[in-house]
Structures are given as C-alpha cells and as structure tokens.
Design a protein around this nucleic acid. Structure first.
Lengths: 161, 161
DNA sequence: TGGACGTTCATCCTTTCGGGTGATTTTACA
DNA sequence: TGTAAAATCACCCGAAAGGATGAACGTCCA
C-alpha cells in the first residue's frame, strides 16, 4: 500500500487514540459528577462526525472533471506585422499552452503578486524546494531567466490577469 | 464510488476495530471502567464516523481540473497618445503621493520589463551600485520587500502601464 | 549660504534566487 | 497493469538581490 495512505491511517489512529483517552477522562469526570451524559454523547458524536468527514476528504479519490475554458488572449500586433515576430509569439504561446502545468501556473500567479518562493511554499503547503523546482521548470518552459521576466511575459501572453 | 475508496474504507474499518480492541485491552488491563459504557462509546464513534463519511461524500464537490486553452485573437494596438496621456495623469498623482523620483521611476519601469539590476545599469549608463541604491530607495518609498512586489504594486497604482 | 534632496558610487554582509542533479511518490492514461 | 507525466522534496553551488552605511557632487530653495 502507499505510504500516503498509511500515513493518513497513522495520523488517524493517533488522533483516535488521543480522543478516546480524552473521552475516558471526560467519562470518569462526568460519572463522578453523575451528570451530563448527553453532553458526553454529543461530544463524541460531533468529534467522530468531523473525524469521518476529515477521513473521507483525505482518502476520497477526487472525481476529475475536466472543464475546458477557452480564454481569449489579446496579442499586440504591430501595424506592420513581421512574419517572423508573429510566428515567434504564436510558437511561444503554443509552448506555454502545452507545457505549463496547473501547479506551475499557480506558482506563476502567486509569483506575479510579488511573493517570495518561501511565501509561495507556505501558501501552497509545500516545501521551498518544491517551489524552486516549479519555478525552474517554469523558466525553462517560458524561456526566461528571472521571475520578473516570467511575470512580464506571462502578463503579455495573458496567462495571468 | 471507486474501488480504491472502498478498499480504504475496509482498511480503515479494520484498523478502527483493531484500535478499539486495543483500547479494550488497555482498559481491562489498567482501568476499571464500566464495560457497557465503553461499548456504547465505541458504537457511537463508529456510527458517527460513518455518518461523517457519508456527509462528506454527499456534500463534497467533485474536484475539477481546469484546462485553460487560449484562443488567439489578434487585435490592433490602440493609438498610443491617448493611453500615454491617461497614464501620465495617473502617474503624476501616484507619483506625488509616493515621492518617487524620476530616476527611480525609470528604474522601476525597466524593472517591470524583467531586466536585472545589471541590465538596468547598462541601459541607463550608470553603475550597478547606483541601480541598487535606486531600488533600495524605491522599495522604501513603496513599502515593499522585493522587486516583484514593487512591480505588482506599481501596476496596481497605475505607475507603470 | 546652508540645508534638503537627488544622483552617483562604494563596501560589507545576508538573504534570496536560479541552475543542476537526483530521488520518491502520486496521478493520468493507454 | 505498466508507463509517462506531474508533483513532491533534497542537496550543492554560484549569481543576483537586498540591507546598511558612508560619501561625493550638484541643484534647488528658503
């Protein structure tokens, strides 16, 4: 089985054990007080309902529904269009369209807002190294050297708003 | 429902049962607690975990993967003088507010095109250190930390087109 | 005429960025 | 079910960026 699944199970088991211990404590406490049985039951119900929801969200295989959005990109064409230049733009656009993954596009968009790699990593809940990998692949695919260049190019291509 | 998910559920149920058995054992070993109470707790836990899973399955939205396909639309660039005038007005207002000097604005504009400090320095025929001083003052006046942030903010303020 | 400010340049230092490489895990698809 | 692509993370290294500070020179203005 996959590591990720076992990791979830381990986390779940740990939290389950912790919750049961907590409930034992609550149970003894409430039994001593000799009241609040309903509160105890309700607490268990709420906690385990949330646990079930969490478990389902973690383990469910997401249905991937593909939505194709046609996005119109406005390209600035000089009054005397150079064929080479025009082809160059179109080719690069095709490269972007076929090459940039969704995760890379996310990074690109966050990058355009002025975030550092570390901030992007925190926002996407991944490590700094992952973001750096994304940016590197992004720069390769966009044929740029720096993030400011990537942002400028993406803006001109309409990849980001 | 996918096969994988049900497999997860089965494994989850097994581990849950195992954990409950473990708790039972621990309980009998070390604690003196009413048995009926514990079975009651376990039953509630299982039932409401299942309820949570069912709720999550009912309420979850299918994860959608969006594929952006850019449709190329060629348009003519509007004649520049009007745009330049308009931007110039906005520039002056924002400029007065922020206290950015003309040289700093030049650096900012070149920065927005994705140039490095060295390239900006070469283009303005000054040294790299000078450009770095300009950028430092720029970041102070604009209250930003990075060049990408400065570019984004300047764009939102209308400082650059 | 002195102070405020802009422009220029410098040094030292730290942080961030980017390139390169390799690896594992997850997902998509044929 | 195997494979290709995507996503994740790691390490190393050099380059670029950024912060702090100082200084010289010129302009403008009270």
């Amino acid at each position: 089985m996959t590591v990720r699944f076992t990791k979830h199970i381990v986390v779940y088991g740990a939290s389950l054990a912790a919750l049961l211990v907590l409930m034992q404590w609550l149970q003894m406490r409430y039994l001593i007080i000799d009241h609040a049985m309903d509160i105890y039951t309700g607490a268990i119900a709420i906690i385990f309902t949330a646990l079930g929801i969490w478990l389902a969200l973690k383990l469910i295989k997401p249905k991937t529904e593909t939505i194709v959005i046609e996005k119109e990109v406005y390209i600035e064409v000089p009054s005397s269009p150079l064929v080479i230049n025009e082809n160059f733009v179109v080719n690069e656009k095709s490269l972007d369209r076929s090459g940039i993954s969704s995760r890379e596009l996310e990074v690109l968009q966050l990058m355009a807002t002025g975030l550092s790699n570390q901030e992007i990593a925190s926002q996407l809940f991944v490590s700094l190294n992952t973001v750096k990998t994304h940016t590197s692949n992004l720069f390769l695919k966009m044929d740029v050297k720096r993030r400011t260049q990537a942002v400028d190019k993406a803006r001109k291509l309409g990849l980001i708003s």
